[in-house]
Amino acid sequence: MIIDWTHFTPGSALAGGMVIGIATAVLLLLAGRIAGISGIVGGLFKLRGDDMGWRIAFVSGLIMAPLVWQLFSELPLIQIDTGYGLLALAGLIVGVGTRYGSGCTSGHGVC
């Protein structure tokens, strides 16, 4: 194993992580909900009318984040080298897997 020092960015990673933690704290301490992304998205499929609004709002916030970011600054480099076929396969596995495993990175890691 060789450490890749040229791309090592502990500062922005730690800061970004803390921002994610703050988002989790806001949702937990004000709304009483867990910021586990797969759980929030997956719960939409239960089609329970009284439980849909906040889920849609949270997902909308996530999707809007890069748009809001661009109001102030340029987006950092985003590089995807995986082809569409593999991406679709990966998405499918992630979708089924996170629901069976009841969580993805956010829920199992932070919460």
Partner: peptide, 16 residues
């Protein structure tokens, strides 16, 4: 609250 939390969460994902 959920909208704001999602927005902050996304900003954190971009920053990190």
């Amino acid at each position: 609250i959920a909208l704001i939390s999602g927005l902050i969460f996304g900003i954190g994902l971009i920053l990190s």
